[in-house]
């Protein structure tokens, strides 16, 4: 099988976070949707500069928590008042004060599971591979540099124009992101900025 290559995107590397923030604002204002930033440490104001919407994680947590509360109440009522009724200290079979601790625990447990699962889903952590991993960019980003990745699948992507956008934003190190022997995987892969839902505090 012949080796094929495909242009997966364009990467711009920055040396300081202020340049990254300025560039992120320009990319957002240019209307890009499939793009992402990679940074060695949390950068204050980055989610605002990228225009990320508020995280949906709170709703996932409260929704799962509500399911936990309902499950706990139903389970305890059924066990202590229906399935195996035992009189304890002359109290009613279904005594709500006795149910509160378990209800609270299942509220927290369900919410925690949903947050973990939701984070994996939103960040698409089940992906085995991404072209960035071959590029050497992640090694640099993990130590000291800041990257903006413009994904080739964005409607606005056009190699020279995308490189120009990053250069105009003050980037002196723009590279092509090339995927080797990809094809099917890449076509099915989601946008790199899929992490936007999970990254917001």
């Amino acid at each position: 099988m012949a080796e094929r290559t495909r242009l997966a995107g364009v990467v711009g590397l920055f040396d300081d976070e202020d340049s990254l923030l300025a560039a992120a604002r320009r990319v957002r204002e240019a209307g890009w949707r499939r793009w992402d930033c990679h940074v060695p440490h949390p950068v204050h104001g980055l989610s605002g500069a990228m225009g990320l919407p508020p995280s949906r994680m709170g709703w996932i947590a409260i929704g799962a928590g509500a399911v936990g509360v309902a499950s706990a109440l139903l389970m305890q009522w059924w066990m202590s008042a229906v399935d195996y009724p035992v009189l304890i200290g002359g109290k009613p079979l279904a005594s709500w004060p006795a149910f509160v601790p378990i209800t609270f625990e299942l509220f927290v447990l369900f919410a925690a599971f949903a947050i973990t699962g939701g984070l994996v889903r939103m960040c698409r952590l089940w992906r085995w591979h991404h072209p960035l991993h071959d590029s050497g960019v992640m090694a640099e980003v993990s130590s000291s540099r800041f990257a903006i990745v413009l994904d080739a699948r964005d409607d606005r992507f056009e190699r020279d124009g995308s490189r120009l956008l990053l250069e105009e934003a003050g980037c002196t190190d723009v590279r092509d992101l090339v995927e080797e022997d990809g094809g099917e995987d890449a076509a099915a892969a989601p946008a790199p900025n899929g992490a936007r839902d999970g990254g917001h505090p």
Binding site: G89, G90, K91, P97, A98, V100, P101
Partner: peptide, 12 residues
């Protein structure tokens, strides 16, 4: 507050 109430309620 609930801990105070529940233990007293339970102990009776």
């Amino acid at each position: 507050a609930f801990s105070q109430f529940m233990l007293i309620w339970y102990g009776n």
